[in-house]
Design a protein around this nucleic acid. Structure first.
Lengths: 304, 304
DNA sequence: GGGGATCGTGTACATTTGTTCACAGGAATG
DNA sequence: CATTCCTGTGAACAAATGTACACGATCCCC
């Protein structure tokens, strides 16, 4: 158990990597790596005994300003990679806090949610994870709803459901056909009865989000003309938070905005300047009642 | 609660000191210090989940070779300060392992024991701490038996006893007078009934230990001539582990070697080349049956 | 048995962390 | 009111830690 000896020498006796390497007859770099492994595998556990959250003030203020049930804020950092991980881990914390054993969780398609899945701690609570919309083909990272559900299910020892349909059908008719499929229908019905929705919130800037980037400019213009300011789990909404019906909307295979709104816990996960407008609407119109964002976005929302 | 926020940003989100400083608007150096404080005060707790001890093999071997009940080994490091702290913390661990609630602990005068007291964790078990010998005047650090007992008592919410007498009386007659004092007698009687003795083991090299360094060269030569190889809690012993009686011994105010030997748990705390001979004798003659030492000393003992 | 991927390793470097020092403000003391 | 002694602060430096890269071994597949 070299790992354990190294970990104890470092954390309990305060020796340096070099000193440990010398007494144990291995290279310093190896000690460095063993220590990293010890932290990752949980051999070394670091607990911060603090009840209050990092941005308690802003969280309280945001909840009050938009009538939200609870808000979680992650620290914004210049290093984007680090910021993303921190954001995801706060998202995971938020979801874990709302998740009860045997819960049914509806999952929106979103890179943010995918990152949360990565960071989700291994807690066996046997929940069910259900996509609220179909898959996008040609996704590089595993952000497809099904994979996402699988990732969550693996970590919670729960069940993952598959929605055998595309997010965006070729035509309204094709979408209707998909929705009529018993396999699709069943899963969507389950999603509609979920206790908790976890979804990203998308803006309308070019190239934003998984759905928009798969569309052409023409379709995007039409959406904007129809008053769209953002989307929640594949459904666009206008400045009042009402659904933007139209050619695009009819092609989406998934729960409608009203069905999403009927889910009791609606956790929105989003950050960044490009999402501010969409966020403001989603929050003030009650599309989501739980929010995970980062400190910069939080401050911008409060300032607005 | 700046401390807590900093600690969480660092340990839970992996931000660097600089990044934390930027988001919180304080200097990086302040973050560094807050983090150190968080670790010291226990706001941040680091647990290494490893059952086996660092030098399990050597500990087993040493116990077998000298017929000891248990052995604890701390890592030897070039950095003397660090080595001393590691040694002391292992000593504290050892003592804590042997200490039961309401135990009576006899304390030998020794810098090693003093360091252990510093590192002793705050565990309320209401033990009594009793010196086995009188005080040395003009000690810089707080290694006097009474202070030592106080330090332990404070950390365990226990009781400290004071032996109102010098370690070394001016004459055998003065020592006898001290011993006849009811206050002294009472405390020593309590010490003799202790469950556990904690004492350093001293060598006979010049300047070694608190007792020897307070003697002149002549007295040291006499001791050597009488066959002394080391001391335990102020009492010198010869190569057989028997007491070296004589002018010096008669002036010591404290428990005799036989009384010390009658204490069930006898924890010896010593390390270093200069103590090897004394240690060998103390171990093989059964003066102590529990040992705390460092890895270099352990290896030397095993090699001999 | 050769080619290629993969893993573990250490070197050299970049980054992060910790420490020393000198200074400034504020409380205690003359 | 001046002086001294703190305590807390950051700048500059020293040390420790982490990372990119390149090398060699091993395993696997052809």
């Amino acid at each position: 158990m070299l790992l354990g000896r190294v970990a104890r020498m470092y954390y309990e006796h305060g020796l340096t990597h070099q000193e440990i390497a010398d007494t144990l007859g291995v290279s310093r770099i190896r000690v460095t790596r063993l220590l990293a492994e010890a932290r990752e595998t949980g051999v070394v556990e670091i607990i911060v005994h603090v009840e209050e959250s990092l941005f308690a003030d802003d969280e309280r203020d945001l909840a009050a300003a938009f009538g939200l049930r609870q808000v979680w804020i992650s620290p914004s950092v210049a290093d984007e990679q680090k910021a993303a991980r921190a954001f995801a881990s706060v998202g995971a914390e938020a979801l874990a806090a709302k998740l009860e054993p045997d819960a049914v969780v509806a999952l929106g398609l979103s890179t943010a949610v995918a990152l949360v899945a990565e960071e989700f701690p291994d807690h066996p609570l046997a929940a069910s994870f259900v996509p609220v919309a179909g898959s996008v083909s040609g996704l590089v990272n595993g952000a497809n709803p099904h994979e996402l559900a699988l990732a969550f299910a693996r970590r919670t020892n729960g069940r993952a459901f598959h929605l055998p349909a595309p997010l965006l059908a070729a035509s309204p008719e094709a979408a209707a056909a998909s929705l009529a499929d018993p396999g699709v229908r069943e899963v969507l019905e389950l999603a509609a009865r979920a206790d908790t929705l976890v979804a990203g919130i998308g803006g309308t800037a070019r190239g934003q989000g998984l759905l928009l980037s798969s569309l052409g400019d023409a379709e995007r213009e039409r959406l904007l003309a129809d008053g769209a300011v953002g989307d929640l789990a594949g459904r666009f909404f206008d400045a009042d938070g009402d659904a933007v019906h139209g050619a695009l909307d009819a092609r989406v295979v998934g729960l409608g905005l009203d069905e999403l709104r009927a889910i009791p816990n609606r956790l929105g996960i989003a950050r960044g300047e490009t999402k501010l407008a969409a966020l403001r609407t989603a929050l003030s119109s009650g599309l989501v009642n739980l929010l995970v964002t980062d400190s910069d976005t939080a401050r911008a929302l409060l300032a607005g």
